[in-house]
Amino acid sequence: MARKIIRRFLPDAAAVKEKPALQFLGDLLHDPNLFHLNRHSVSLAFFFGIFFAFMPLPGQMVLAALCALWVRCNLPITLALVWITNPLTYAPIFFATYQLGRWILDVPSLATSSEHNWAWVMEEFSHIWKPLLLGSALTGFVIGGLGYITMQLFWRWHVARAWQRRKDERQQRDN
């Protein structure tokens, strides 16, 4: 089953629940839906994990975890997918989402400067935040939606293949 494939990469639910740093969540963390591996839970985790990965906000993981708690989808998968944007990938990803937002809003390109200091960043941020946020939200929604659909289709394909394999085994035994 698809569960067996995914379960190999996830931490044990009991180990996560016993972490002292997470005890403030109380009974919320003991909801079994947060660790279930079913088609619905995993697909939603893919959507929200990818969506928050593309959001250029501080605390992406916290926001993704709160969303996973709210919609009761698989928490470890949601948090793992937020790491799509990591120190190696965030610059090209957010540059591409900025360019998409800039294209949609029809905003002219910024003039480049040879001096990149904190004052320059703060001044330019007032010009780039709208295209960056729009491009990131749109990209996160589309790629998250594709992740959701892909997991739904993968899960169905995997179950159908297992059923067919069992059917073939029964036919071979009967012959």
Rank of each mutant, 00 (worst) to 15 (best):
R166H: 06
M122Y: 04
T112G: 11
V142E: 07
L138N: 03
N74Q: 03
V82L: 02
L34A: 02
A91W: 14
L10F: 11
S126Q: 13
P108R: 11
P131Y: 02
S113Y: 11
T139G: 01
G59H: 10
A15M: 07
M55S: 04
R7L: 11
M61C: 03
Q172F: 09
L134I: 02
A21C: 09
W120L: 06
L57G: 11
D168R: 12
W103T: 15
Q60T: 07
P92R: 05
Y148Q: 00
T97Q: 00
Y148D: 00
P11K: 07
S113L: 06
I5Q: 06
A15D: 12
G59P: 05
W103H: 13
A64Q: 01
H116P: 03
P58D: 08
M55T: 08
G144D: 00
A111P: 09
F47R: 00
A45F: 01
I77Y: 06
L28D: 14
C67Y: 02
Q23V: 04
S41T: 11
A2H: 06
W157G: 12
R7P: 05
S126T: 12
R170G: 05
L79C: 06
G135M: 02
F51W: 08
H30S: 13
W157D: 05
A64W: 00
A160N: 05
P92S: 06
N38R: 05
V107A: 12
T112K: 15
A137M: 13
G140D: 03
F48V: 13
A21M: 07
I84L: 09
T97H: 04
L88E: 06
I5F: 09
W120V: 15
P32G: 06
F24C: 13
P131H: 01
N74K: 00
W70S: 12
Q99G: 06
L29S: 02
K167R: 13
T85I: 08
A68W: 00
S114Y: 09
G59I: 04
I128Y: 06
V159G: 10
T89A: 05
D12V: 04
R161Q: 15
L132F: 06
R170C: 09
R156S: 12
F35V: 03
L100H: 05
L79G: 01
V16E: 06
L69H: 08
L10H: 11
S136L: 00
Q152I: 12
R7I: 10
N117G: 14
I6W: 09
F141E: 04
D31Y: 04
V82I: 07
P20H: 07
L100Y: 03
G147A: 11
W163D: 14
R7K: 15
W120K: 10
L138W: 02
F94V: 03
T78C: 04
Y90S: 05
R3L: 14
M1C: 10
P87M: 03
N33H: 15
S113V: 10
Y148W: 15
